[in-house]
Design a protein around this nucleic acid. Structure first.
Lengths: 347, 347
DNA sequence: TAAGTCATGAGGCACGTACCTCATGGACGG
DNA sequence: CCGTCCATGAGGTACGTGCCTCATGACTTA
């Protein structure tokens, strides 16, 4: 019943025929089982390359008769972005299930390195193929990532990276570039120069320290007339951030700009709006969430730099599927882009 | 061999048991085949909802023993964005194949409605499940879309929509919002007012006419001190656009802003750079391509509004898969976002 | 009442891969 | 020359779904 001229896609049978070996041998090679001479392995691999065989992912998962099991580990607490990240996971879980991808979510206390390390330690490769974590850069976490990898649980980082470990992939924006972009916008907003304060969540978070580095570099290179104040750490908490902003406003009556490279934006907006200086200070924040939307609309915030949580979750799942088939995820996943939002292009 | 407490996912067998019918009946319901009483259909659907059955997409495509066949119809010519769209299709074709999605690309002459209509007419539902087209809003195209739908080829629109036809889905940005965003940025760039020229490709393209509408509305609502010149149609061609810009520059020595809502950006940049007024005029263009990157870097262009071609192709494929399973694509696809690029956040 | 129509059941084969068992034949050491 | 190990072949079953045929029993219509 095949249409003429419409070639069937290659199967393991075709590989076996092309390599001049049996199905069993092809299977052993494909799934990395022992008992095949090196020369034979090469023959099979050559045949695969020659006829362009691609393993059928659906049939493969079907035959294994089990889903790909992913565990997302996401910080809990008042951080709205993390909440929207978790929501995105929930939204994707349903559709993913019909692709045989089973997703679980773990929420752990924000900025609690030991809690993160421990939940990684608890992951059993028999129940979890891949863990996707929002990492913080602390020794206990790094050790736990390497240990999990050694046990056979693939680890990927999300939003905040953990270079120098066994993590197989990072999904998130280029945070140095994000910081540079913030500097570039801030510099254009303040051609006359002035004081710019920087608030971070925690410099143990790689995304925050990268943004800071990019922002500093951007200011130094292009806008030396801006004077940087801080960074101050608000631990991504609403009330703590609000207190810090209040203090900065009181301490610097001539404050011209504010860059919050962490979370806690509810506190940022509240502090600005209750200060009578909202709109007079150029404000750049991160992540499009309820408080930053409110800030954009009221004029308290000028620009929001955003990473699309839905896109990140989608790419994480896609990367995990690729890894599960022994492929290289890096070659096929799309980079996550830095979104720039002002009042007029709110989505 | 199932882990204790790890429930197996529901299958058609479970549905049959739960509904008290046979496998054959479940199958008839699932695949919309006739010969089932309405009451029985309801019983089955209730059972599906109750036990949370989700069809196994992989097994389904496997059993059908054929790939999902998609045909992308993309304009040819000097339009760099369309080229990058076609590239994105090519990039996705490989990975998609391992999900049993077979992709073909047709390039047709840009702005040639009859060529587009004819390639739609040529699509045979036995060789193509779904066509994804960059539409232009002309009667012959509209008729061809409806005819193809009637023949059994699902049609989706990409980049430029075709409302009022049988097209099942549109994938692209909200172009009215894009125009409004351009207006908002332009207005902020030119607080002292002035002349702003608008260049389009063709107002038969829905995306262009939508952008124009959004831009006009945005200026009228917020920046009445800006005087709009045009639109002039450059037909998305490099040389024609270059000539038009040259003419505008000569005719309006006091030109303050330029919004090219179409393609032909190579001509835009060339005209500006050879005019000695590059950098003195605020310029907003669309689509991140080689010429617009060059323009951003040289300062000839201030802002580029972008739709991510890779993201669009990804969503198109995802939507087609959903439609193929009888689902409603609109509920599961992510909206495409308007990217805003300046020199500093080039990707 | 006989013939026909219709909803449903029962069961089987196919899809491409994973994974299992068993057979076979060659190489090698003693 | 015999026993052992090892690479490989042969062939089966299973996974969940699609699609086919055939049988059966209920109901309609002439």
């Amino acid at each position: 019943m095949n249409e003429i001229g419409l070639r069937r896609r290659a199967t393991v049978h075709d590989v076996a025929r092309a390599a001049g070996v049996s199905l069993a041998t092809v299977d052993r090679v494909l799934n990395g089982r022992p008992g095949v001479r090196a020369a034979t392995v090469e023959k099979v691999e050559a045949a695969i390359a020659e006829i362009g065989f691609q393993r059928d992912l659906g049939a493969s998962l079907l035959a294994r008769s089990r889903d790909l099991r992913l565990t997302f580990v996401i910080p809990d607490g008042s951080n709205e972005f993390m909440a929207s990240l978790a929501d995105a996971v929930t939204r994707r879980a349903g559709p993913a299930l019909s692709d045989r991808v089973h997703i679980e979510t773990l929420r752990i206390r924000a900025l609690d390195a030991d809690a993160l390390a421990q939940s990684l330690d608890n992951l059993d490769p028999r129940h979890c193929d891949c863990a996707i974590i929002v990492a913080s850069e602390e020794p206990s976490v790094q050790a736990a990532v390497d240990a999990a990898s050694k046990r056979g649980v693939v680890v990927m980082t999300l939003v905040s990276d953990l270079p120098g470990t066994q993590r197989r992939h990072f999904i998130g924006i280029d945070n140095v570039a994000a910081g540079r972009t913030a500097a570039s916008l801030m510099g254009r907003f303040l051609p006359q120069g002035g004081k710019v304060a920087v608030i971070a969540g925690s410099l143990h978070l790689r995304d925050h320290s990268d943004r800071l580095a990019g922002f500093k570099a951007g200011l130094a290179a292009e806008f030396p007339s801006l004077e940087l104040i801080g960074p101050v750490e608000g631990h991504d908490e609403r009330s703590e951030t609000q207190a810090i902003i209040g203090g900065l406003l009181a301490q610097h009556p001539d404050l011209a700009g504010l860059y919050n490279l962490g979370a806690g934006n509810g506190g940022l907006v509240s502090a600005l709006e209750s200060s009578s200086r909202s709109g007079a200070i150029r404000v750049i924040a991160h992540e499009l969430t309820e408080p930053t939307r409110r800030g954009l609309k009221s004029g308290a915030i000028d620009i929001v730099l955003d990473q699309n949580p839905d896109g990140e979750i989608r790419e994480a799942i896609a990367a995990a599927r690729m890894l599960a088939l022994g492929g290289n995820s890096a070659t096929t996943t799309d980079p996550i882009e830095i979104g720039i939002f002002l009042r007029d292009n709110l989505r």
